[in-house]
Design a protein around this nucleic acid. Structure first.
Lengths: 334, 334
DNA sequence: AGACGCATGCAAATGGATTTGTGAATGCAT
DNA sequence: ATGCATTCACAAATCCATTTGCATGCGTCT
């Protein structure tokens, strides 16, 4: 592998000049610049990024912390973030905090600490509602954008309008004439889960539909709990029997639909289903689910924009909080 | 951020000694070691990884090249590979070669070239059957493991037994008494797609079931082509009408099932469906699909093992080629 | 007592690129 | 022709950690 010295020798100039050709082209006269460029091309030279980092203090690395890349919601985010970062010449390091068998409560914090040793230029932290993580974020001296609901405004953040999306679904079900509905939410630890649930219930209230806490099933955001929720729904009979169910995310909906199928429950004939969240793969799920949400990629793209604004000094005010609106899309399921 | 010099000053020793405490602990006497360690802890020091890389020539970075992380097959691989790499203290850089709108034929090659500038310690290259990529691999001086079928044995490689898996499905359908079947394959460029198809057809042949090229639908490995395949199947009537279909991967199966649903075609009543591939999310797809395959995570884990063997000199013979066997899992769809 | 070996700690060289400060050369105006 | 302002190129310092080779001191063996 060739170094800047070899290029300099070959071109008959000093290392400084070679560096200028690469980084401040206009400081070098055209003929000389071309001579140096020729040497660079002949040797197939490219600057050693580690040496460059050492000198400049920038690594061109962004770390992205998410719970689980196997969750399509986060996969979409990663994909979009990577594409956006790559355009800016930055590489992404992805960290799954929810390591199988690991204790995820402490994991996020450990990761945050580990990360400070890696000297990344910026951080994208996905919502995972860890206790103590917000204080930890305050301590960081790395530009950070939090994706999700951040109670203390320690750093920039961007989230989907969970409440609004839940509201849209509630309103839709009300207009469809449903009188008795249930919902399957994510875990209480997740702000997003509670906001979706609250929005949904607010819409019911505004439409004069009775709803009690008993009609809430507290899930985990994962498929098995969707399945369990479906089993719970099967136990409801008489006046308690719902004509529609609102599911808090995609993965639980998959579990729920599978269980309904196995039990011979037909959607929407026997029960209507609407969910929060919009993902590309929903295009091929049948029955096609009525849903409110936004592609997570939009979220990630905005997060990257905010991060880049910080990195290149385009913005340096106090932490910003942004909200991405939801859209309601109606299909056969409800 | 504190440096090794500050630690040395604080502990009243030379930089060398601090370095030894960190990297060759036994070369430093216990009392001194403890004194230095105390200084390290007080200052919260950790070595600058860039400086370390510059000196040692190792970056602790592994690059992973895959077509599209949105494809669950590759998501699983990434997840497993990252977990395995992390255990070894290595970070993974993920590159999606199939950038939207990009020309993927040339992209893979460009990426490979780009990567040589990043100075990663190792490479995991996912199957994407690009022309010219195998020659490019030969030129690399970076330890590499290719995941998929590699015609020239330029580097280590590991793949799933595509042929065997296809064979299992063909045999199963034959035993179920199907006399006329069709199959939906991946693109010709993918060795894996052709191997699955060939295995399938070989099994039919061995079971004396007639099969002609007309019964092959050449898909793209993506959902829309599964949908189109379903439409094609709907046009087959009379003697051409199949009682079963073999689909080459998960994504095309999703498209096919959606189209069947929309057309009112019932699985397995009207037509049986079996696929190649096993992914966690199939657990929640209904009807539950009969399938032959292996979780891509196993593939990735083995690939990482092979790569680590190269990196720490545990193995340095000629390139190895390994094959991971498939298993047949029978469910309601066929 | 002298020679030798071992454990221990340090100074200095090394890796590769960027950047500051300086001197030389050129152009323009007087 | 002289003085001043630019432009251009370079030497050397810097970023931080690792590692080689050397110096010191202590104990052991002959």
């Amino acid at each position: 592998m060739s170094t800047i010295s070899k290029v300099a020798e070959r071109a008959g100039v000093s290392r400084t000049t070679v560096s200028h050709v690469i980084n401040h082209a206009n400081r070098v006269s055209k003929p000389l610049r071309e001579k140096v460029q020729a040497a660079i091309d002949e040797l197939g030279y490219s600057p050693n990024p580690q040496a460059k980092s050492l000198r400049t203090g920038r690594t061109n690395l962004i770390a992205m912390l998410i719970p689980d890349i196997g969750n399509p919601f986060y996969t979409e985010m990663v994909k979009a973030a990577q594409a956006a970062l790559e355009e800016a010449g930055l590489d992404a390091l992805i960290y799954n905090t929810d390591v199988p068998g690991g204790n995820w409560q402490t994991h996020g914090r450990d990761y945050l600490r580990q990360l400070s040793r890696k000297r990344v230029d910026g951080l994208l932290v996905g919502d995972f509602a860890l206790h103590g993580i917000t204080e930890e974020l305050l301590k960081l001296d790395t530009p950070t954008v939090f994706i999700g609901h951040l109670a203390n405004q320690a750093v920039d953040s961007v989230k989907i309008d969970d409440f609004g999306g839940g509201y849209m679904v509630g309103e839709h079900l009300a207009r469809q004439g449903h009188k008795h509905v249930v919902q399957v939410t994510g875990p209480e630890l997740f702000e997003s889960a509670m906001a979706r649930a609250d929005g949904f219930e607010q819409a019911l209230k505004d439409n004069k539909i009775r709803f009690s806490r008993k009609q809430r099933y507290l899930g985990s955001y994962l498929p098995p709990s969707g399945r369990e929720a479906a089993q719970w729904i099967a136990t409801l009979s008489g006046d308690d029997r719902p004509s529609a169910v609102f599911v808090g995310n995609y993965l639980m909906a998959m579990g729920l639909l599978a269980e309904f199928h196995d039990q011979g429950v037909r959607v929407p004939k026997d029960i209507a289903v609407a969910i929060f969240g919009d993902l590309p793969q929903l295009e091929y799920v049948r029955p096609n689910l009525t849903r409110a949400g936004e592609n997570p990629g939009a979220l990630a793209r905005r997060a990257v924009e905010m991060l880049l604004d910080r990195l290149n000094g385009k913005f340096d005010g106090p932490p910003r909080t942004e909200v991405i609106p939801c859209a309601l899309r109606i299909f056969e399921s409800a």
